[in-house]
């Protein structure tokens, strides 16, 4: 690990300013992904601003009838919250399908949104990687690509966003709240939060340097039945090959987002409208223009089958 200086922030705007004014500074909350990457020198911050004391650790009702989840609420506490379990079951289901108990106890809501791809070429500093070293090339293209993206990818990068929680948040139309070093706040719909790689895969999200996530807001509950179907190589503690987050109403309408397939949780509203017509109609629309490799072409029929399983359960 490269040397860095460390401070424990007491004020959100000051913390944001400290990172905004130092291009090689980073926030640290749970640290489970950042420290992992710092150990192998994929991340090399020279200054860490610890945000654990900023008080963003509560889940509160909003005037609109939804919930405001503090950025520092741990994955465990978010999944276990009584209102989340009752009204936003897809979110609890997604969180407990990810990582391990130990990691969920430490990982924060904001950090989970900001976790980086698990592409092994990104992790291996002996390999070229446009995300790790812009302009160096992509070893995953033409390499072992079974796990990587089939849609929304580019000629620079075929990595996927690895998370589960954000896929459920996409179905729920969550909004990410931030504050910057000038004290300005902004609200970013989760649909716009993660970027498609294009020719700048080094940038995962639309956040600016020093922009600090303070909360994630959920609109009022959708009702319906909530599902998170995750298909992976082992029964527990593995990243998704394909995941399906869905909220299905009794009349067969609903919403669906997919994980493990793209640089971001993948949801196409026009495809949602096809839910009453069955899984194949939805995925045909949602994955129009997909560009799988021969290693990961299996993900497309797998997504259809995973959604079909969800729809069958919704009818049962």
């Amino acid at each position: 690990m490269r040397a860095f200086t460390y401070e424990r922030a007491k004020d959100a705007v000051a913390a944001a300013r400290a990172v905004a004014t130092n291009p090689s500074a980073k926030f640290i909350a749970g640290g489970t992904n950042l420290l992992d990457l710092m150990k192998i020198e994929v991340e090399v911050p020279t200054h860490l601003v610890d945000v654990q004391d900023l008080g963003f650790d509560k889940i509160e009702a909003t005037p609109e009838g939804g919930l405001r989840i503090g950025a520092l609420v741990t994955n465990t506490n978010l999944a276990a919250d009584a209102l989340i379990r009752r009204d936003y079951g897809v979110l609890t289901r997604a969180i407990v399908a990810g990582a391990s108990g130990q990691l969920r106890n430490k990982a924060s809501t904001a950090g989970n949104l900001l976790q980086r791809t698990r592409c092994p070429y990104f992790y291996d500093t002996n390999m070229v990687c446009n995300k790790r070293k812009p302009g160096s090339g992509c070893a995953a293209i033409g390499g072992y690509s079974r796990q990587w993206g089939v849609i929304g990818i580019s000629e620079s990068c075929i990595a996927t966003f690895p998370g589960d929680m954000a896929v459920a948040m996409r179905v729920l139309d969550a909004v990410i709240e931030t504050i910057d070093g000038e004290g300005q706040s902004r609200s970013i719909p989760i649909a716009d939060f993660h970027r498609l790689w294009g020719d700048t895969p080094e940038r995962d999200t639309v956040l600016r340097q020093g922009e600090l996530i303070t909360a994630v807001t959920l609109p009022k509950p959708l009702g319906g039945r909530h599902f998170y179907e995750k298909v992976r190589d082992r029964a527990s503690y593995a990243y998704a090959l394909v995941s399906v987050a869905a909220v299905i109403q009794s009349d067969g309408t609903g919403r669906v987002a997919f994980g493990g397939l793209a640089p971001k949780p993948w949801r196409v509203e026009e495809a949602d409208a096809l839910l009453p017509r069955g899984a194949a109609a939805v995925t045909e629309r949602a994955f129009q223009g997909a560009t799988p490799t021969k290693d990961n072409a299996f993900k497309l029929p797998l997504a259809t089958r995973a959604l079909a399983a969800v729809l069958a359960e919704a009818k049962a």
């Binding site: 460390y6 424990r8 640290i28 749970g30 640290g31 489970t32 420290l35 992992d36 860490l48 610890d50 654990q52 465990t76 108990g101 130990q102 990691l103 106890n105 430490k106």
Partner: peptide, 19 residues
Amino acid sequence: CTVIVDGVRINACLTLAVM
């Protein structure tokens, strides 16, 4: 490396002591 910190289990390898 699992240890119990403030009542919950975590991976001691993925957290800085100064935190």
